[in-house]
């Protein structure tokens, strides 16, 4: 098994007719992912690519296509509405790729989602990949914007706030001959749907996942929370990395959530907590793969 999605998962894309959404929907189709429908209000009845039907509403798209997961590529002013539409349509999983959603919108979305069955990943995230078994990991489930070919099917779970750092870790693992069960980008915003801890718990319960790489950065206490849980409950080896040792305090480093506020959310403080919780902390971003492999030997 993998977590959250596998090669049979049916996915719809909200914002499939936009340049960004369309490009990545096509890359996912090329990867072998079951992109079964698109949603763009006012463009229902049209077709994306060769044969992917487009609907006006998520409800219609889900009913007609059987999709259980939605990927959101709509621009920031409309993203909160798009997420709530997917929740209303009863999707199991909503993955919001959109970067730049006002944080107040996300606060309201999160409150409105209380009690629903939907899990949200993101926003401002690279998405999720469960690699396939084909060449260049083809045939898997790629939702979002990650380069598919760097993946390889295997037993390491990867969770990260940052897209490009996820690719870095995945690529290092693949080069070392270690494949991945599922790679999850939870996003760089201060308010997100799924935390490091949520994903660690899923990896811990997943038979296929044998080891984990957890990547974090400055700001907030999500990594510390996950590490403290792992020290008590996680049965599997974890390697970690925290970006932002050289970030000046009080400045927002690109990600809206990446800001050092107090002493607890510096990179050094987080690394210390991770290490105390039994996580092997990689000194540099170039050694994430090696650090995990060293634990497995």
């Amino acid at each position: 098994m993998s977590i959250l999605v596998d090669e049979n998962t049916k996915v719809l894309v909200q914002g499939i007719t936009g340049g960004f959404g369309g490009k990545h929907a096509q890359l996912s189709l090329d990867y072998g992912t079951k992109i079964v429908a698109g949603v763009t209000p006012g463009k229902g009845g049209q077709t994306f690519g060769k044969s992917t039907p487009i609907y006006d509403t998520v409800e219609d798209a889900a009913k007609q296509s059987g999709a259980t997961v939605s990927a959101i590529f709509v621009p920031p002013p409309f993203a909160a509405d798009a997420i709530l539409e997917a929740v209303d349509a009863g999707m199991d999983l909503v993955i919001a790729i959109t970067e730049g959603i006002p944080v107040a919108d996300m606060m309201r979305v999160k409150a409105a989602m209380q009690g629903s069955k939907t899990r949200l990943i993101g926003p401002n995230c690279p998405g999720i990949v469960t690699p396939g078994r084909g060449e260049n990991s083809n045939g898997g489930c790629r939702i979002g914007i990650a380069p598919g070919y760097i993946h390889k099917r295997g037993n390491v779970g990867v969770v990260s706030r940052s897209g490009t750092l996820t690719y870095e870790a995945v690529y290092q693992l693949t080069e070392l001959g270690y494949g991945q069960s599922t790679c999850v980008g939870i996003g760089g915003d201060p308010i997100n749907g799924t935390s490091h801890l949520d994903v660690l718990k899923m990896f811990n319960d997943d038979d296929e996942t044998e080891a984990i790489i957890m990547i974090g950065e400055i700001g907030g206490n999500a990594e510390a929370e996950a590490a403290r849980w792992a020290a008590e409950h996680c049965k599997k080896p974890i390697a970690g990395f925290i970006a932002g040792s050289t970030a000046p305090p009080g400045r927002r480093m690109g990600h809206a959530g990446a800001i050092v506020g107090g002493e607890e959310d510096t990179a050094e403080a987080k690394k210390k907590i991770l290490a105390e919780c039994g996580i092997a902390v990689s000194e540099t971003p170039s050694d994430m793969g090696k650090t995990l492999v060293a634990m497995l030997k």
Binding site: S160, G163, G244, A247, G254, A258
Partner: peptide, 16 residues
């Protein structure tokens, strides 16, 4: 660099 996380990590490794 592309990506905020990798951009921070790149600064870190230069220092390292």
């Amino acid at each position: 660099v592309n990506g905020a996380g990798l951009a921070m990590a790149t600064m870190d490794i230069i220092k390292h």
